[in-house]
Amino acid sequence: MALERTNGRDAGAERSPAAVGQQADAAGHRPGVVAAAVYQHGRRLRDIRIEEAGEWRNREGVVIWIGLHEPDQELLRQVQLEFDLNDLAIEDAGKAHQRPKLEIYGEAIFVVARTAHMTGEEIAFGETHLFVGRGYVVSVRHGPSTSYMAVRQRCEASPAALAHGEHYVLYSILDFIVDNYMPVVEAIHGEVEALEDRLLRDRLAKADIEHLYMLRRNLLRLRNAVVPLVDVCRRHEHLELPGMEVAMQPLFRDVTDHVRRVQEDIDALREVLAFTFEASLMIGQSEQTEISRKLASWAAILAVPTAIAGIYGMNFEQMPELRFRYGYFVVLAIIIALCVTLYRFFRRARWL
């Protein structure tokens, strides 16, 4: 049976928490439940309530797919009872700011992934927790993450692929998360190129340095979200996970390749930003050195008349050349000659 790869780049529009809540109410779900449906052999049967999930478990070819957005503890406990989820996993799912990871609890797995997408010119970071077991997938979103309704629609449009069950749903969500990293990296790449062009034309201003620092900080946050996900996806390439099919390995290998490419792009951008900052410092130091050389050159030139005038400005009666008729003109000519000589010397040395 051929598997189709979902592409996160043509996902649906982002949805605010208010819109998600309106959708949940319209579908008759309780607050915090975005969608809850049951599928058999890849085809959607109907929407269900959380309390009905236990009735459909362990049926042949049935997968229950539930999507939650910032659920309360009561809702999480209800989901735990219906799917017999681990206490530690439920405790982690109730809190945001978890590190991306994959944990195995018996015949079920718990996956944490960090999400990122552009909201205008800012990067919005969110978090997704996934419970995957035999016949069910429960996704828990925290923060301003993009809705997975587009992923659900694409999976429903391909019943043959969705018939592979819960691990195909897991793959589709992870692929969607990873693909959403790319627009963020591309946006940062454009800003980095703009900083590089500005550096070549002129010195970076203080605002540019502050913007450079913000870009480095965003790249670090994005890297902290991406790098642990490499290991999470890599583990899905092997048959060490409960219920993993051989046919799913190429799909998860593809996701792993995408994550690694994102990681490489992030590392490359961080190196470019580091070089841009160092180049800005070197240009500033070079300009300061040039100014210091000019000041030193003019100080040396002005030291000649200052020294001669200081000597002949002493109030002694017995001094040579005091009675010389053309002494002033001779001294003035000597001063000019010495100053011109020094000026030409510094010009040849490129100090002036």
Rank of each mutant, 00 (worst) to 15 (best):
P100Q: 14
D231T: 15
E245S: 11
R234I: 01
E103N: 08
F125I: 08
Y326H: 11
G8Q: 05
G12M: 11
G28M: 03
N86T: 09
L281C: 09
V63L: 15
L162T: 00
T276P: 02
R261H: 13
L269S: 11
R30H: 03
L229T: 00
E193S: 14
E196N: 12
I308H: 09
M314Y: 04
E245I: 10
S147E: 04
A333I: 10
V178Y: 06
I283C: 00
T289S: 15
A187V: 00
F83Q: 07
E52I: 07
V184W: 10
R134Q: 12
P71C: 08
A24K: 09
P31M: 02
Q78F: 00
G28L: 03
L219E: 15
L199H: 12
M118G: 06
A24G: 15
E4G: 06
L295S: 11
R59E: 14
I283E: 04
A194M: 03
L239V: 03
G327D: 08
A299V: 03
G61V: 00
H236Q: 12
R99G: 10
G135E: 03
F346R: 02
T6V: 09
E317G: 01
L222N: 05
A124G: 09
A53Y: 01
I90K: 08
V232D: 12
Y328C: 02
P183Q: 13
R99P: 05
D92N: 07
L204A: 05
I335S: 01
R134F: 08
Y171S: 04
N224L: 11
E51P: 00
R344T: 03
A307Y: 12
L195C: 02
T119K: 11
E74N: 10
R43P: 01
E103H: 07
G94S: 10
D175I: 07
S139K: 05
E103V: 05
F277T: 01
G42P: 07
Q153T: 11
R134D: 15
H41I: 00
L295E: 07
R217N: 05
H29E: 02
V63C: 13
